[in-house]
Amino acid sequence: MKLFCGIDVGSAATKAVLITGSLEVQGRGLCPSGADFSAAARQVFDAALAGVGAGEADVEAIVSTGYGRTNVDFATARRTEIDCHARGAYHHFKRAITVVDIGGQDNKIIQLDAAGKCLKFAMNRKCAAGTGAFLEEMALRLNVPIDKLSKMAENSAAPGVSIGSYCTVFAMTEILSKVRAGVKTEDLARAALVSVAKRLLETQAIVTDIVATGGVVAHNPVLRDILKEILKTEVHIPPHPQHIGAFGAALVAASEQKE
């Protein structure tokens, strides 16, 4: 079997996706990126291969992406996560879309035309506000396991609670003062997710449907409704949103092979 692999070494997690020449997904891998990016890349690659029962020799091309894209020494090419998320999302929604990727350390907004070409993109600027790192801080402050944040937010009965500042540190002190004032944890969990959506709102004007990708969306399903409400547009979530970058990289691997 001829396979193509994409490896997305993100700041928080490393993902691998294996596809065939006809672009069918065969296997996936996922592990924390940790401090050794090449080891994480190797680990997800091996895990994905093992899942398919294939060997390295079956893989025709490997494209790396993400923060650690240069650390994947066995990759045959590399692309930015912007390009890969765009390709991965477009594969599932072939029309003019805006890809919104909320990652561990950064957010990306990528506007694609109907043919899937990037018209413009922007990343969050200067700080971690509105990213996965921000939510982790929030969860810590609220003493909620990060994977429970979304569930808690769903139970919020006071959607009007909000966090005003966009500096993560200021947001923390704001949370503290709200905790002191007796605001419920569920409402603060929701406010944290709303804050993520607001940071996106100010990054770049959004004029099409959104396709949301990345680990934060994967782990916080409630975010979809919040994005819809704040950004006032339809929000689609592709299958396996956390793996979209790696999937896009695999698509590049397959397409380059064809050329």
Partner: peptide, 8 residues
């Protein structure tokens, strides 16, 4: 990353 993506 931004520069690389811009060139892409």
């Amino acid at each position: 990353t931004n520069i690389e993506a811009f060139v892409e």
